[in-house]
Design a protein around this nucleic acid. Structure first.
Lengths: 251, 251
DNA sequence: CTTGACTCTGCACGATATCGCACGAAAATG
DNA sequence: CATTTTCGTGCGATATCGTGCAGAGTCAAG
């Protein structure tokens, strides 16, 4: 049994049964527990499963994950969201991507702002119910549960019929070389499509995303119009972004 | 049973039933009370639940949940939702309408149920993120904020491309003469369309909706397949429904 | 063929986590 | 106030974890 075969089997079992006990599995395969534990550790390192005491669980697109992300740097995200909300002019058509930062944006939209918000995120849509003057256009499609956004051809088709003034994009990595990246291929494609349909693309990035890279590229750095980030970052972190031609906003 | 599984189960039970008794739960799982208490303490430490003497309560009841708790008959809605959830067979394609009762339905879907859920309600979509085996298809369109559902031609077009086995419909009035009614014209039209695309339409109605009528008719009573309502209603209220040919389920 | 670098695996061992039990404190109950 | 239930903590037994290390196998260069 090859290591990669074993790892593939582990993931298959997690998908089918929703859990895996290290001891039990090692006996079933006739290898030592250590080997299994090593596999589990490595897969967990790649984010492909959730390591727990005694075994592993699927890297659930589950809510625990999403909620924990919501709390990471929440004050910074709130600041970013607030600043971004002020960039919207009355009457504009704005596309809001999913993600916790954009939820903050939605939450901080001025109450007297009249605008049209297009989104493929049901979380954003629910958030905007409170804003009486904002008209919400929901993009449908297959729900990608990890990010809680609609993806797939249905979404792509709906998006291609819309032209927006601004697009507030979420991303898991913003890097001078690899550009703007995210963790899912299909999500990356959808984000790129939305950007093509929008006059200007604005990326909100907390400090831990600057200089980070994820597997799938959405677009090169040069295609972003504006990058909004927090103040107080070291000059060497920001220099490559400043020199790449985009507008850098620190809040 | 892994520790983290137990903790996940605790949170699920709190979402579904709104409370958990330590002693009772420990017996159900066959572990000591101490273990459960430890779990509860740790989860409470992370702010994931509210520790109370004898057990635990949900930490931050979700908005829909909170609202339904304040209304009369919240437990009735939960009961209806629970009963409706059991009517779904594995592998079926189910259309879920918006509304608080259907949120309860989504929350009570069996955790091991593999099915496809189609919905034009972003609230339902967000709720279903927790169900790893349920594939969610989101219908897009203009958001009608009062009911938090997507409506309009975009939605209609998307709906017309889908055929579902079951449709769980929400309504504000169910009356022997005026049929099933709701408060918005466009919403009524969308509901009627979904019903046409579905093999069977099931209406969940709490007691205050039976015999009530709203301005816009969705469909006559005869076009409903099943009406699910609570037990203990007077015979004269139910008689006209029983004689109209639909299946009446009391839970 | 030999050698050396590399990977995979299993074992040993100390560190950590989990769990049930015991006991006194605190809270609910009547 | 007395009784009962529940709670929190300390403790020991057991399970699980991570790491260091050594043996076996692979592979390519010499």
């Amino acid at each position: 049994m090859l290591t990669s075969e074993r790892k593939a089997l582990i993931q298959q079992i997690l998908r089918q049964e929703g859990r895996l006990v290290a001891k039990e599995f090692s006996q079933k395969l006739g290898v030592s527990e250590d080997t299994i534990r090593r596999d589990l550790r490595e897969l967990a390192g790649e984010g492909l499963l959730l390591r727990v005491h005694g075994g592993a669980l699927p890297a659930s697109p589950a809510v625990a994950d999403y909620e924990s992300r919501e709390q990471v740097g929440s004050s910074a995200k709130a600041r970013l969201g607030q600043a971004a909300a002020r960039m919207i002019q009355p009457g504009q058509i704005v596309f809001l991507d999913g993600g916790t930062t954009n939820v903050q944006l939605a939450r901080h939209l001025p109450h007297d702002l009249k605008a049209v918000v297009v989104t493929h995120s049901p979380s954003i849509a629910v958030e905007l119910v409170r804003h009486p003057l904002v008209e919400v256009e929901l993009i449908g499609g297959r729900l990608f549960k990890h990010s809680i956004v609609a993806v797939g051809t249905t979404s792509a088709e709906a998006i291609s019929r819309i032209r927006a003034d601004l697009f507030f994009m979420g991303a898991t990595g913003v890097h001078p070389e690899t550009g703007v990246t995210t963790g899912d291929r299909e999500e990356a494609a959808i984000k790129a499509l939305i950007a093509r349909q929008s006059a200007e693309t604005i990326v909100l990035a907390t400090h831990e995303k600057l200089g980070a890279a994820s597997p799938y590229q959405i677009m090169p750095l040069a295609d972003i119009g504006t990058l909004v980030t927090v103040t107080g970052l070291p000059g060497e972190t920001l220099r490559p972004f400043k020199s790449s031609g985009l507008t850098l906003v620190e809040v």
